[in-house]
């Protein structure tokens, strides 16, 4: 699919989902790379991160064409199921955090823990490997998210654009701030991505099984709305239960 043939109105939702999900993962990778750079110097931190990015690029080159050759219906079913599991997991976590049943993720605490651990085991090789692992582990998750959101609906270009935009944003913020992005509203991001991923997932499962969706593609925003109503109702119920 070329840039000129993309229906950008339809592409907005997958692009947004890929952008927000990738943003969460990139922020986590940035926290560790910044911790490495602060403690052990920027050469091993940036070297490890660059090597990790190179490995991820090679993975994309290998995986992309392989997925394109799989028939659409089984692909929609498999990817839909994975997206539903991923979305439901993030949405559940966001609901439990909003209701006060789970602790919020704290990038400042993660940064402090990582720098403390690095000071114990300081060394160029350890620093390089830590940055490399952080970028590869979080990056593999981003690749899965982009492929899952993009492939089943033939929206790989917008989904990739969303992820690259998130990467650019995190890189610029990292260069400017030189400290972890503690003010990113991670729970709100996970809530939104959970809604979108669960909606895309269910939609693709239905398409893969040949089930009817009222309104065709419009069922996706309708599903997101239904998930949102359910999640907000659950947060309210849990908060009431805690207050009683």
């Amino acid at each position: 699919m070329g840039l000129g043939t993309i229906d950008w109105a339809r592409a907005a939702a997958p692009m947004l989902a890929a952008f927000l999900a990738s943003l969460v993962e990139f922020v986590e990778a940035l926290t560790i790379v910044l911790a490495v750079g602060t403690v052990a110097g920027w050469a091993p931190a940036l070297g490890g991160a660059a090597a990790g990015l190179a490995l991820l690029a090679a993975l994309v080159v290998l995986l992309g064409p392989a997925l394109a050759s799989v028939p659409v219906a089984p692909l929609q079913l498999a990817i839909g199921l994975l997206l539903l599991l991923f979305g439901a997991r993030w949405l559940r976590k966001a609901v439990l955090r909003s209701a006060g049943r789970l602790a919020l993720h704290d990038e400042t605490a993660a940064f402090a823990a990582e720098t403390a651990a690095l000071r114990q085991a300081i060394g160029r090789a350890v620093a390089w490997t830590t940055a490399f692992k952080a970028v590869v582990i979080e990056g593999v998750e981003v690749i899965f998210i982009v492929l899952a959101i993009g492939t089943a609906g033939r929206m790989l270009v917008p989904a990739t654009a969303g992820a690259l935009l998130a990467l650019a944003l995190v890189l610029v913020a990292g260069i400017l701030l030189h400290r972890p992005l503690a003010r990113v509203p991670e729970n709100a991001l996970k809530f939104t991505v959970g809604l979108l991923a669960a909606s895309f997932g269910l939609f693709w499962i239905g398409e893969g099984l040949g089930f009817a969706w009222p309104g065709g593609d419009l069922a996706i925003p309708a599903l997101a709305l239904c998930w949102a109503v359910l999640a907000l109702a659950l947060i309210r119920t849990l908060r009431r239960g805690a207050a009683a």
Binding site: L96, L202, F203, A212, C226
Partner: peptide
């Protein structure tokens, strides 16, 4: 759903079942 001839409501039925499973999982934590 195909055995029962209910593919025409397959999409909404998928959501309802998934929503129930999700709600049960969240409320189990309360």
């Amino acid at each position: 759903l195909p055995i029962l001839g209910l593919e025409w409501v397959g999409g909404p039925a998928l959501f309802l079942g998934a929503a129930l499973v999700f709600a049960a999982s969240v409320l189990r934590r309360s």
